[in-house]
């Protein structure tokens, strides 16, 4: 048991190495203030960032839905990962998974070293895959990973989407209104390749986009 306690203490020390610039209450205050001042796009971005840090915070989700209506955008999409991350905070899941993994591994080694530990062999063999599964699940549902490629159009009036990274090509694939969430694909100079909500691909000037998960901190 002492080993487990020491492990838990060690893992707890690994917690936030890079704190967010704004605390969650500050982000929430910012979102509500911007929304009441009529800065809907910025308020939606603050809501998205808040939800990336705490996917289970329903008021932020409701406020984001309301802003989408005011911007005439489709309702914000949620998937099973958001719902799962609301139930299982990813960081805590990662700590639990790590504890399970090492408990299982060291338990197996102990049963091999000493016959006296033989009765713990089965639990030890169960802990190992459970720990691995918890770590993998944590990685899959963490919005900071799952939504790391999400960005929002923050250019007032929206942004044109081009089929190639050049304004020389007068054709535009579409025009996306500001506040629209897009999926980042790649970057080339001033241009960012994105996937539109309807699945089409195109290029947008990078100045028109703001990543949901701040790039310098992710």
């Amino acid at each position: 048991m002492k080993i487990l306690v020491y492990l838990a203490l060690l893992l707890a020390m690994a917690l936030p190495a890079h704190a967010v610039g704004e605390s969650l209450p500050a982000l929430w205050e910012k979102a509500t203030r911007l929304e009441s001042e009529g800065h809907a796009v910025e308020a939606a971005l603050a809501c998205r960032r808040l939800l990336a840090l705490n996917p289970g915070y329903a008021p932020a989700r409701d406020l984001l839905a309301k802003i989408h209506i005011s911007l005439k955008l489709p309702p914000p999409a949620t998937d099973w990962r958001d719902r799962a991350a609301g139930f299982f905070p990813p960081d805590r899941l990662a700590i639990g998974g790590s504890l399970c993994l090492w408990t299982g591994l060291f338990g197996i080694l102990a049963t091999l070293l000493s016959p006296a530990w033989g009765r713990w062999r089965l639990p030890a063999f169960l802990f190992l895959p459970a720990g691995l599964a918890a770590l993998a699940f944590s990685a899959a549902i963490d919005p900071r990973i799952a939504r790391s490629r999400e960005c929002v159009v923050t250019l007032p009036g929206g942004a044109p989407v081009y089929p190639a990274p050049s304004v020389d090509d007068s054709r535009t694939t579409a025009r996306v209104p500001d506040g629209t969430p897009l999926s980042f694909r790649s970057r080339s100079g001033r241009w960012t390749a994105v996937t539109l909500p309807d699945g089409r691909n195109g290029w947008i000037l990078s100045e028109a986009l703001t990543p949901v998960v701040p790039a310098e901190q992710s």
Partner: peptide
């Protein structure tokens, strides 16, 4: 109530 959640942009993993 202020929301609780992750305190870092960097995932623990």
């Amino acid at each position: 109530a202020p929301p609780a959640g992750s305190r870092s942009w960097r995932p623990l993993l």
